[in-house]
Design a protein around this nucleic acid. Structure first.
Lengths: 113, 113
DNA sequence: CAGTATCCATGCCGATACTG
DNA sequence: CAGTATCGGCATGGATACTG
């Protein structure tokens, strides 16, 4: 599957990053997958507010962009596991940084006058 | 001016970050302002593809969220300068990381089969 | 369990033209 | 120079119901 991003001719590489990470739930999904392999239902349960439809869409895009891997087990009941690829794993530090910043930012704007 | 984000009751702080940084041009703007104070026209010239309307909107939101400062000089012709606040400056490392990752990612997806 | 299908709303964002 | 005004498209994402 070819990655969705292939021909953006910008010089600013933050755009490449935001294009891949731009979905509403993508960073949250990635964050949970950093903790290890998760099943569809686990993700659905642990991410409050996401609908199956959106979860599926975002997972498929992350897969198309090479950030996560999808493994289907031919069982009944069905079982599908998601995990980060090497590329997805390479985002761990950045996501950690974003989360830490988000926490700090919340403190700033809530405590400061 | 109160920050737009004040009552998101999530436990996942990446959401706080994405809400503040979620605009299409915000990270690019921030990236350029990390280099120092810039005027509206400078930003407009250095960010390809952005319309005055969008640039204004994103700048105002960044200002409302406390990431940048807007200084108006009572001169003619008009002169407005934008610069990062301390909060905005605190994102420098993260934005650098995103840019580096974007560059690396592009290499991965273009060179790998 | 792990999704699809369908419909629908919002709002994000672009293009263009105009102004203090 | 640094914006506003107005119009409008279309992607993003939500709600609900259904299925292999």
């Amino acid at each position: 599957m070819p990655p969705r991003i292939a021909g953006t001719a910008d010089e600013c590489m933050v755009e490449a990053a935001t294009e891949v990470l731009g979905g509403k739930w993508k960073l949250v999904i990635l964050r949970h997958l950093q903790g290890g392999t998760r099943r569809f239902g686990e993700l659905h349960r642990v991410i409050p507010g996401v609908t199956p439809r959106m979860l599926t869409r975002q997972l498929r895009e992350l897969e198309a962009d090479g950030l996560i891997r999808r493994r289907v087990y031919a069982e009944v009941p069905p079982k599908v596991e998601y995990s980060v690829t090497e590329i997805g794993a390479s985002l761990e530090k950045i996501i950690d940084g974003l989360e830490a910043w988000g926490l700090w930012y919340r403190e700033q704007v809530t405590t400061a006058p």
